[in-house]
């Protein structure tokens, strides 16, 4: 990344006008900022066609020589290299100039992943791209603050300087499940995002069973990960019973921390449970 500072830009801009009749070039202010209107003075008499070609616009208008060509802010909203040309019956003359980005006032903030298991180390990645008001990347180093606001626990801030308009940081989730809010700030601009810290693999998965008129009702103990976080509702728990008739399986979703299902078996049976790659206890009826 440090090498990015040593970027050497190639300045060779070989301007070679087609016209054989060279006339004085247009005089453009040396330093221009995106979105700032400016004027170009012209000399002589008669009319010419004025062209302004930039990364995001093409302007063509007839100008009265001796007057000033007014270029609006919208016409140079995109930062980059512009060509100003003046063409008449005697040919074309012109110049090129650079429009630089304005101050950093906008931020594109990407926070991943949106759901992160509590055990995943350095799994949260925050990346911010800094722009001026016209979405030109601001290449000057600016400081972006990443404020982290967990639901349970103290808030903290990480400040990162941009390199070529980018700031990024890695963070680890807390041990407890729940949402965490991360706000990226540059200047007055704030961009909040929320990610969910979620339970990891089920741990110590246990079931209990009792006979009913319809068969056997199987119910898990509250399903939690090894940190004690409840697995989210909807997590599938697979219950398998083997009896004389064969095997019976049910994929039951966890509801309010517990998975519950009815197995249509009546004789003696062995019942086991699993969730993903986690395997639970086995009981015999």
């Amino acid at each position: 990344m440090a090498k990015m500072h040593s970027l050497v830009f190639v300045p060779a801009l070989a301007l070679s006008l087609v016209s054989s009749a060279q006339v004085p070039t247009l005089q453009v202010p040396a330093r221009l900022i995106a979105g700032q209107a400016f004027t170009i003075p012209t000399h002589g008499q008669g009319e010419k066609t004025f062209y302004l070609l930039g990364p995001g616009s093409v302007v063509k208008r007839t100008v009265e020589l001796g007057t000033e060509v007014k270029v609006t802010g919208a016409e140079i909203a995109a930062a980059g290299r512009y060509l100003a040309l003046s063409c008449g019956s005697d040919g074309c003359s012109g110049t090129d100039f650079f429009v630089l980005p304005g101050d950093a006032v906008k931020i594109s903030f990407l926070l991943h992943p949106s759901r992160v298991p509590v055990t995943a180390h350095n799994a949260i990645n925050a990346t911010a791209f800094v722009f001026d008001q016209f979405h030109n990347p601001v290449l000057r180093p600016v400081t972006v603050d990443f404020r982290v606001l967990p639901k349970n626990g103290p808030a903290f801030t990480k400040s990162v300087k941009t390199v070529q308009g980018v700031a990024w940081s890695e963070m680890s989730p807390a041990a407890k499940e729940g949402p965490v809010k991360v706000i990226a700030t540059v200047g007055e601009q704030e961009e909040p995002r929320v990610i969910q810290q979620v339970a990891s693999e089920a741990c110590n998965l246990r079931i209990k069973a009792r006979r009913t008129s319809k068969g056997v009702e199987v119910e898990t103990d509250p399903v939690r990960d090894c940190h004690g976080n409840a697995v989210p509702d909807g997590t599938i728990v697979s219950v398998t019973a083997v009896d004389a008739q064969g095997r019976t399986t049910v994929d039951a979703p966890v509801k309010k921390g517990i998975a519950r299902t009815q197995l249509p078996i009546h004789g003696s049976a062995t019942i086991s449970v699993a969730s993903g790659v986690a395997i639970g206890n086995e009981i015999k009826l």
């Binding site: 095997r247 399986t249 197995l263 249509p264």
Partner: peptide, 12 residues
């Protein structure tokens, strides 16, 4: 949706 739940019984 987690519904419906379908048990697979008497597999052999």
């Amino acid at each position: 949706s987690a519904d419906p739940v379908i048990a697979v019984a008497n597999q052999k």
